[in-house]
Amino acid sequence: MSEFERDPIIDKVRDTLRSAPHVAPDQRAVARVLSSVWESPPPSGWRRFINTWRVPALSGLGAGVLTVGALLIGFVTRGAVNPRQEAEPLAATGAPTGEYPVQAVAFDAEAIQIPTQFVFEHGEAQSITLVGDFNDWKGEAMPLTRLPNGLWTTTVPLLPGRHVYAYLVNGTLLLADPRAPKSGDADYGNEGSVVMVFAR
């Protein structure tokens, strides 16, 4: 910021607007956003096509060639394909299906991974990773991010069910989550913590 922009009133306005407490990290809100992201359908075929083949500009000649080509293909293949005639008869389902075939799709809610947030407080750690039965207790797979307020956090997609986990601090120290129930067993010398993930 240049000197001429320094102004005690503007500085105070900035401090006021920056310190709004209602924008403190909100783990539930973050989880909601992630759920929305994971559930969002992927880009449509056209969108993907456009993303992949972004042509800076199509010349008039190029557009003309493409148009003529499309018309030619349409003329040559006219009558060769008639999807309505070739469509299989609809399966008798007992319910009115209308003009379009309806296909039953198997949907297994238990197979959908749920974004699950982990938060751990450790002021002196240099690195923290999340380990558990969901990543074969491998320390490098799921690092936590340190937030400015000293909390460490990560959000990982987990299958619904019971999971045992712990935090690996500085690559050597395995600590249970003090805010979660203990697992009751000590596979790695210490009790782990338990997180229950529910299908929505």
Binding site: A24, P25, A29, V30, V33, V37, L147, T154, T155, V156
Partner: peptide, 16 residues
């Protein structure tokens, strides 16, 4: 996970 971390870090600023 990287995307989740991005959301985690940027959410407060974006919401503000």
């Amino acid at each position: 996970q990287a995307f989740a971390e991005l959301v985690d870090v940027m959410y407060p600023r974006a919401l503000r």
